[in-house]
């Protein structure tokens, strides 16, 4: 589904990642962990094409990402659900419209999906905040909205960057359930987090593999996790 081959990346200074190879098979469930500043967000950005590797190759859905023009990249992103660590929204639109944004920009009939939309909003506990603007949301509410937006298109793969960073335990379990549910439907999931409790909770329910960034490389974590 997504494949990194000997990828190196640097933001201009020293190399942040070198010789990273990883492979997310269809239907797999992965966690990506590592200390703050290790490059988790960077790996995710490489996966969805916001950053281009300095060396190495990234393939998504069997195509080399370098070969995609901007329109093809847009079409590829519609098959990916992305939760950004900083939850980027359109601040002038209500939460509901932000959550529905992937539908809007891909020209899907908004009215037809409105049932899904309200169901999704209630799943992430935002039904009563649907008309609020994103700047009026709390950090946790923003993350819930971001997750809802990521999954509304029923994407083939969900890439979530700290999706539970600001929510309480109960809510983080609820959000995790949503992702596990999607995985059971056959979707590929990659969650970047340093919340070990969340990882343990997930491992008791799904076959999840844990990748750890250390020494500028991505490695499979030991069985202790």
């Amino acid at each position: 589904m997504i494949e990194l081959e000997q990828v190196a990346y640097s933001y201009g200074g020293g190399e942040l990642l070198s010789d990273v190879s990883l492979r997310l098979n269809p239907g797999s469930f992965h966690f990506l962990t590592g200390p703050s500043g290790a490059g988790k967000t960077t790996v995710l950005k490489l996966c969805y094409g916001e950053l281009q590797p300095t060396t190495g190759r990234i393939r998504a859905f069997e195509t080399d990402m370098r070969a995609l023009d901007r329109d093809q990249m847009a079409l590829m992103r519609r098959r990916m659900g992305i939760v950004h660590q900083d939850c980027r929204f359109l601040d002038h639109l209500p939460v509901a419209d932000n959550v529905a944004l992937p539908l809007t920009v891909s020209g899907r009939d908004f009215a037809q999906e409105s049932g899904n939309l309200s169901e999704l909003l209630s799943w992430v506990g935002l039904s009563d905040r649907a008309d609020a603007r994103p700047p009026e949301l709390s950090g946790g509410e923003r993350q819930r909205a971001a997750l809802a937006r990521a999954v509304i298109m029923s994407p083939d793969i969900v890439l979530a960057d700290e999706p539970t960073g600001n929510v309480d335990w109960d809510m983080s379990q609820r959000l995790l359930q949503l992702l596990i549910e999607l995985n059971r439907m056959g979707k590929t999931v990659l969650i970047a987090t340093h919340d070990l409790a969340l990882i343990r909770a997930a491992k008791s329910q799904v076959q999840a593999r844990v990748l750890r960034i250390s020494n500028r490389r991505v490695q499979l974590a030991g069985a202790d996790l």
Binding site: Y48, L75, I82, R88, V105
Partner: peptide, 16 residues
């Protein structure tokens, strides 16, 4: 430009 960035991340084409 931030709006444009968000739109691109959710899969909007340039034409749109």
């Amino acid at each position: 430009h931030q709006v444009i960035e968000v739109l691109r991340l959710v899969g909007a084409r340039d034409g749109y």
